[in-house]
Amino acid sequence: MALLNAKERMLRRAAKDIEAGMTVNLGIGLPTQVMTYVSKDLPVCLHSENGIAGVGALVTKDKADRNLIDAGGAYISPVPGASYFDSAVSFALVRSGRLDLTLLGAFEVAANGDLANWIIPGRFAAGVGGAIELAQKARKVGVITTHTDKHGNPKILERCTLPLTAINCVDRIYTDMAVCDITSEGLILKEIAEGVSVEDVVNATGADLTIPSAPLPTF
């Protein structure tokens, strides 16, 4: 395999936390791309909120079923054992705690686990879709995001400035620079990307970051 860039290593690192037996929902965009790095042999049920448990591989247009898409509109195949259901059942599954893990994108994440990922007043307000219920009710919530925005401003903050998707919901943040956990003791640096220094991460983070004394694993 060719050398992976920082984004690819972030996706591959997030994929490591998808474990056998889990039911998982991957948000549209970067999180969906995590599947590229999940072993095809791993027994995992992938849920998509438009009404399928058992999402399989993407299919090309010439092989696509016009009635079978994921929530992002991509044409998919079902795996053996998949099921289809209506939108009320789909979110019953989410709200009742059947999702072991969801991975979502973010505009901002706060050190207390608040997530903002659906509205930028005056610029972007296309609706919340299923994000609130995924963020609030999945047993574990991971955020996949670049560590800073395209202007270099931190996306991990002491408090979110944008309207929230859900409060105190995020457990782990995967970025192109680091993996951070949100705990009752605050934001903790857990792993660091190859070629990035602790100082780089601290400078790119807009919140207090606890640095463990033990050497940090790299990814």
Binding site: A88, F91, V128, E133
Partner: peptide
């Protein structure tokens, strides 16, 4: 999005599963 931003239609956003329920 444009019609909403120009005030030509009213849009009420509801969380997807709450809309379904």
């Amino acid at each position: 999005v444009r019609l909403m931003n120009e005030g030509l239609i009213e849009v009420e956003f509801v969380a997807q599963g709450i809309l379904a329920e």
